[in-house]
C-alpha cells in the first residue's frame, strides 16, 4: 500500500520536474498523470495495490476541494461586484459547451455508421 503512494508521489514529482525544466505552463500533477498513464500502458495493467490507493483517493476526491474552496471567502466582494459576467459565463458558457459537444459527437457517430 505504502509503496504505491510512493508511486503516485513519484509521478507527481516527475511531473513537477518536467514542467519546471521545460518551462511549460501546465500543472505538474497533470504531467504526473500522463507519466502514470504511460507507465500503466507500458506495464499493460493496473497493479492491485495501486488500484486500492487510487480508489481510496478518488472516492474522497470531492473532500479534497473543500480547503481551497473555502478560500472563496476572501473573494466574496469581488463576486458580489462581478456577479453578472461570472454567472453569465457559468450558465451560458456551460450550456453552449454541452450543445456543441453533444451535437458534434452525435453527428460524428451517425456519420460513421452510414
Amino acid at each position: 500500500m505504502l509503496s504505491y503512494i510512493t508511486v503516485l508521489l513519484g509521478c507527481q514529482l516527475a511531473g513537477e520536474t518536467i514542467v519546471r525544466l521545460l518551462g511549460i505552463p501546465i500543472p505538474g500533477p497533470v504531467v504526473g498523470m500522463v507519466v502514470l498513464f504511460l507507465l500503466l500502458a507500458i506495464r499493460g495493467g493496473v497493479p492491485e495495490g495501486l488500484d486500492k490507493v487510487g480508489r481510496a483517493l478518488l472516492l474522497n476526491l470531492s473532500l479534497l476541494f473543500v480547503p481551497a474552496g473555502v478560500g472563496v471567502m476572501v473573494y466574496l466582494q469581488r463576486i458580489a461586484k462581478e456577479w453578472l459576467p461570472i454567472s453569465a459565463a457559468l450558465v451560458i458558457g456551460t450550456l453552449i459547451t454541452i450543445a456543441v459537444t453533444g451535437l458534434a459527437m452525435s453527428a460524428l457517430v451517425k456519420g460513421r455508421r452510414q
Binding site: Q12, P29, L58, P67
Partner: peptide, 21 residues
Amino acid sequence: AQFIHFLLGPATVALAIPLYR
C-alpha cells in the same frame, strides 16, 4: 486544512487509473 489540500496532487495523478481503463 492544507493537510487535506496536499492530497489533491497525488489524487490528480491517480486520475490516470480510470482514464487508462
